[in-house]
């Protein structure tokens, strides 16, 4: 598919160049070549953009999940990336500050929202 689009793109470019070349001698043919070349150029670029968008849409992106670890005694808190085996209220190693056991208090992902749609119905 991509090969066909690329060939069309090259041929279209060739037609545009040819139209410039023949313009002084045959304006009618130049105009037709320009129309064909321009049309082909627009079409192949459009198809390429569509193909790129489709490839991009195939990817499933999941934002990273973070684990919050807290010491209930001294309030020391740290956030790290989620590791297999983490779960909320899991007891972990001792706190760096007070030697009390630390626990996982939160596991969540933060999503950067795209610019919100403007609508009078969204409050």
């Amino acid at each position: 598919m991509i090969l066909v689009v690329l060939i069309t793109l090259v041929l279209s470019l060739l037609a545009v160049v040819l139209s410039v070349v023949v313009q002084p001698t045959n304006s009618e043919a130049s105009l037709l070549l320009l129309a064909i070349g321009g049309g082909g150029l627009i079409l192949s670029v459009y198809v390429l953009i569509q193909m790129r968008r489709r490839m991009k849409a195939l990817r499933i992106e999941i934002p990273p999940v973070n684990t919050t670890i807290e010491c209930r005694k001294c309030g020391f808190k740290s956030v790290r990336e989620f590791q297999r085996g983490d779960y909320i209220f899991k007891e972990l190693d001792k706190c760096q500050k007070c030697d009390d056991k630390m626990i996982i208090t939160a596991i969540y992902r933060e999503v950067q929202e795209k610019e919100k749609e403007r609508s009078p119905f969204l409050s």
């Binding site: 999941i62 999940v65 939160a106 596991i107 969540y108 992902r109 933060e110 999503v111």
Partner: peptide
């Protein structure tokens, strides 16, 4: 069904 978001938390 996806990992819990902060807003839900």
């Amino acid at each position: 069904v996806s990992p819990m978001r902060k807003e839900i938390f």
